[in-house]
Design a protein around this nucleic acid. Structure first.
Lengths: 217, 217
DNA sequence: ATCAGTAAATTGGTCTGACAACTTTAAGCT
DNA sequence: AGCTTAAAGTTGTCAGACCAATTTACTGAT
């Protein structure tokens, strides 16, 4: 019940990510609850990555929430197959997103995707790798699928995966073999062919999975 | 720091999911920390779905953890037509889980799935509907896919969906047309045919989506 | 002896007050 | 003006008390 109260408070107030929440004692008085209760609620959201507390400074908002926000905490063991398990989940989401994009992408969406593809190809030919540009390309596809949940879920999963193998040194040519498939994926979406989009996405992810397997051995 | 202490405590003690943790006042003394601090740590894990607290009874372990397990909470903002958007995400996950189950299900898994199917069919023939038994059937498939993340995500999504249209009166025959497809899905998994499993899962979810569309109009 | 009802003990939930640790800000001093 | 230092503000932790819900144990009637 207090959870909901604070969720409404954040949703109502126009706090942006990075902003500082009112001090505990202020919020406490404003919501007419004890400090322990408020602190427990804050800890709850801290655990969910919504808020971050810095001792002596304040607690800061990381992600906007509202009472309608859904939270899906995942417990994954870092030992060995955790990464591959994440990849399987990602595969399910990514394939569906590509198929939906093939069905629903507007002309403007296609134009945006193609521009991302072109810059990615250019950077790749120059550097031999194009991590951020690859991400941009895929993000534009998530946007084009017409369902914001895919973008939210997949970008967060990519973040976690990134941190998961940020510790281990990544080869510079990681998943570079998947490069040519990106154009084919775009063409499948542009042709409004969901089945082809599924297949091309699977090809890309298969290569990524192979490289992960090579890496963790 | 206290987090780690309690994580080690759980990892060291052989508590199984469903077991009851020591009372707060006991743990407090055992770890030499104040009660508020301990309660905040418990709230932290409550948020991550690791433990569940029942007032007057105790706090119970839901998932085994250790200091090596990683927690990555996903935060999703469901907007206006959140139900249909969630169904699309669920479709991607569920299809992948069914296909993986078809590939990896052991003989024991298949036996369990079939038993769930049989009780579900029996209850359905008697009552005309079988909500909890249907859930059990699908959960057994998630287990059989060999990747616990699918079970975590999908069961939590089902929870949210459940609460989302718990307010609106649900027809007793909701998604009852999907009933015959459940046996076909099981047979596809038993035949180790991932493509057929995909197709049957899509058939089931298509009916659910149709009924949702009818309902929210 | 069995069962029901009731009282007591147990447990999580909340409030209050206090102090420590740290950060930020502001004042003061050179 | 620049540096130092003090003060104010903030989160983190501890302690004790009480409330609400559940569980357990007891007591008494049948």
């Amino acid at each position: 019940m207090v959870m909901r109260a604070v969720a409404e408070y954040i949703g109502r107030s126009d706090l942006q990510p990075g902003d500082c929440l009112p001090a505990e004692r202020v919020l406490m008085a404003e919501l007419s609850v004890g400090r322990s209760t408020l602190r427990e609620v804050i800890r709850h959201w801290q655990a969910l990555g919504v808020v971050e507390s810095r001792r002596g400074s304040g607690t800061y908002l990381l992600r906007r929430i509202s009472p309608e926000t859904m939270h899906l905490p995942l417990v994954v063991n870092t030992g060995g197959n955790g990464l591959l398990q994440m990849m399987e989940v990602r595969r399910g989401l990514e394939v569906e997103a590509s198929a939906l994009a093939a069905i629903r992408a507007s002309a403007a969406d296609l134009e945006l995707i193609e521009s991302k593809l072109l810059t990615m190809e250019a950077v790749f030919r120059e550097n031999g790798c194009a991590g951020p540009e690859d991400l941009e390309f895929h993000l534009s596809i998530y946007d084009a699928c017409g369902n914001p949940l895919f973008g939210q879920l997949l970008s967060q999963m990519r973040e976690s995966v990134q941190t998961l193998f940020a510790m281990s040194r990544v080869r510079t040519d990681f998943a570079s073999r998947s490069f040519p498939f990106h154009r084919e994926l775009f063409e499948a979406i542009a042709a409004k062919d969901p089945d082809a989009a599924r297949a091309k996405t699977l090809s890309i992810l298969a290569i990524v999975e192979e490289d992960i397997k090579d890496m963790i051995t």
